[in-house]
């Protein structure tokens, strides 16, 4: 089988080399490059091409490219870097996230080269749980700290960021995650105060966020998002995190609306780039 393949490949290689007669000192390699459709092919090949230096021929089915270079003028690394800058992950380089995001919808291939990010322990720098453990070693019941509410908080801020970026699709996806995070919070071991707040707010949070997830219209999403502020504020007040959280106020949206943020700088989720810095810090939640 291998022999057969090389029998086919050899004339193909010869044919190819004769086609690219303008390249001298030719060196050819086949490289795996992620991508999805004929449009990707164009972008990849255009990204690789430099007159007299390099060219590529990408195969949509095999997801491999045959790259031909003049080895005295450039190297494979430079070509693969250019292809990644055009938005396509390959064996050596991962595309910048911005370049990937800028690809048309049909080209948003699955990024198989990317490694799964590690969750970073202690990144949120909240060790209050451990201290508690020291003070009261007798209590075995797990304490609900801001760490176990952490995913809910994170999901809220991710949703907010998507709205700041005016990205309806991302907002819908983040809202779905938010809704899931709310449902995943374990109620066992919550202290009485938090339990009360949680029971009061949980349903509203889950329903509103699930609602946002079904909407594709940014205006509707923002309107619903405004309703999340009050319950989230109550939760954050009940379990402040190590890093401060800011309650921001925009006087213009719907006659005045609030949102929560980890950044002190105002980044308005109700208007996005239209009025990015409209608003002011109303209150700071600190531990």
């Amino acid at each position: 089988m291998k022999g057969l393949l090389s029998l086919i490949a050899l004339p193909a290689l010869l044919l190819f080399s004769s086609c690219s007669a303008q390249l001298k000192n030719v060196q050819t390699t086949t490289v795996r490059i992620d991508g999805d459709c004929p449009m990707c092919e164009k972008t990849i090949e255009k990204g690789a091409y430099v007159k007299g230096e390099a060219e590529a021929d990408w195969d949509v089915d095999a997801k491999t490219a045959r790259i031909t270079i003049d080895s005295t003028r450039t190297d494979m690394d430079a070509v693969l870097q250019r292809i990644a800058h055009a938005g396509y992950d390959n064996e050596r380089y991962l595309a910048p996230d911005v370049a990937y995001a800028a690809l048309p919808g049909c080209c948003q291939y699955e990024r198989t080269f990317q490694q799964k990010p590690m969750t970073i322990p202690g990144a949120a720098a909240d060790h209050s749980g451990h201290d508690h453990g020291h003070d009261a070693p007798a209590t075995n019941a797990p304490q609900v700290t801001s760490e176990s509410l952490g995913p809910v908080f994170d999901a809220y801020f991710a949703l907010k960021d998507a709205l700041v970026a005016s990205d309806a699709r991302k907002a819908a996806a983040q809202a779905a995650e938010f809704s899931a995070a709310v449902k995943a919070v374990p109620m066992e071991g919550m202290d009485a105060d938090l339990h009360t707040v949680w029971m009061r707010e949980m349903e509203l949070l889950a329903n509103t966020s699930a609602g946002i997830a079904t909407k594709t219209n940014l205006e509707e999403q923002r309107k619903a998002f405004a309703e999340l502020t009050e319950p989230m504020f109550a939760l954050m007040k009940a379990r402040p995190t190590a890093t401060p959280i800011y309650l921001d106020h925009c006087p213009m949206y719907e006659g005045g609306a609030d949102w929560l943020s980890r950044d002190k700088a105002i980044r308005n989720p109700f208007y996005g780039a239209q009025m990015m810095s409209c608003g002011s810090v109303k209150e700071t939640i600190v531990k």
Binding site: Q81, A84, H85, E91, R92, Y93, L94, A95, P96, D97, V98, A99, F113, Q115
Partner: peptide, 8 residues
């Protein structure tokens, strides 16, 4: 490992 580019 594989190199994650920053946006130029």
């Amino acid at each position: 490992g594989i190199k994650q580019l920053a946006a130029p």
